[in-house]
């Protein structure tokens, strides 16, 4: 992330990610970039995977038109790669929902409409999968090695001030494009290293708030949990991370009374949102990037800083590949979020 919103093209992160190919299996990789669609900054940029453009696109067109205006849509440019089988056609819409169609009383009517559309389209399994839905951002992912995916989309053609990237070693749904990271809903995108042992609890919890889990993989719930906690419940990023990876009771019991009270309340209220199992997660929205690990620190996480740039990665090598002059390298404690904010 660049705190001053100075953009970087995708070549750097492509190279950083390829440093960690040992961690992947060549069956899924992806990138998300913030700030790439300045011309449509007020539109929700919907990245969609179509199984079959002729058959499936009109369904999505019709649904979107029902709920707002499609300002512009086009195929996402792709470039054939010998090692990547293009099983989907990536498409992008720049969409403006009609806020008057949202349920009355919503604080964020446009977000409500778009998130409901995402849930609906993805659950319907109509040959279209919406993989990102925020403003001025886009997710580029596919089944393949990181370099191939990057070259397939030619991500060096995009200029973003925050980039997340992920290299997958799938066990559950190999090769499925929808299962590759990042996962996105509205502004927030998530990449995740690990496995969430509390997935069953988290999924049932999040589904009781109207989300539908459709990607067959655990990371999806993280994106929805962040949306719930931050957008719908109004927690700031610090508190949201604390709800997802709370302190142990032992630590809470030792806190001064006032602090203990709200920490206790947070754990009680969000018991089913708490994530268990090994994980290192980096999440970002337009203004923030946050990295955190599980409470027992079972996955690695390294943080690098260089002037206005903040890097969070599983390995230091990746950071140094992208930024050889990195000024500081730290390893944050378990459950302790590393938060970067861009200047307003």
């Amino acid at each position: 992330m660049d705190r001053k919103r100075r953009t970087m093209d995708g070549s750097g992160i492509r190279q950083a990610l390829s440093m960690m190919n040992e961690r992947g299996s060549g069956e899924g990789a992806g990138y998300v970039a913030y700030g790439i669609y300045p011309d449509y900054r007020d539109c929700y940029a919907l990245h969609v995977f179509f199984d079959n453009i002729r058959e499936n696109k009109k369904v999505v067109d019709a649904t979107l038109e029902q709920w707002g205006t499609i300002e512009h849509d086009e195929a996402i440019p792709t470039y054939d790669q010998p090692n990547l089988r293009a099983v989907h056609t990536p498409w992008r819409y720049f969409f403006k929902p009609d806020p008057s169609l949202a349920l009355p009383g919503s604080a964020t009517p446009e977000d409500e409409i778009v998130s409901a559309l995402v849930m609906r389209v993805n659950a319907a399994r109509c040959g279209a999968l919406i993989v990102s839905s925020g403003k001025n951002l886009g997710v580029f992912k596919a089944g393949g090695w990181p370099e191939d995916v990057a070259d397939f989309y030619r991500i060096e053609d995009y200029e973003g001030y925050t980039w997340l990237a992920h290299n997958r070693y799938p066990t559950n749904t190999p090769g499925w494009w929808g299962g590759a990271h990042p996962f996105n809903l509205l502004g927030w995108s998530v990449v995740h290293n690990g496995e969430i042992t509390s997935y069953g609890t988290n999924r049932r919890y999040i589904e009781s708030f109207g989300y539908t889990c459709t990607m067959f993989t655990d990371t999806e719930v993280v994106a929805y949990l962040i949306d719930l906690l931050m957008r719908r419940h109004g927690l700031d990023v610090d508190l949201a991370v604390r709800a997802l990876a709370p302190p142990f009771w032992e630590e809470i019991d030792r806190m001064p009374e006032a602090e203990q009270e709200w920490n206790r309340a947070l754990r009680l209220t969000y018991a089913s949102a708490m994530m268990n199992g090994p994980f290192a997660i980096v999440a970002a929205d337009a203004d923030t990037m946050v990295g955190f690990t599980d409470r027992s620190k079972l996955r690695p996480m390294v943080v690098g800083e260089c002037a206005d740039r903040l890097y969070i990665s599983s390995e230091e090598a990746a950071i140094r590949a992208m930024e050889p002059r990195v000024e500081s390298i730290t390893m944050p404690a378990a459950g302790e979020p590393v938060i970067g904010r861009v200047a307003p």
Binding site: E195, S198, G200, R203, R204, S272, N276
Partner: peptide, 16 residues
């Protein structure tokens, strides 16, 4: 053994 360090992550976790 289930990789869970808090009982609330088992509650309703029928996936396990």
């Amino acid at each position: 053994a289930a990789g869970i360090n808090s009982i609330e992550s088992l509650r309703g976790n029928r996936d396990r």
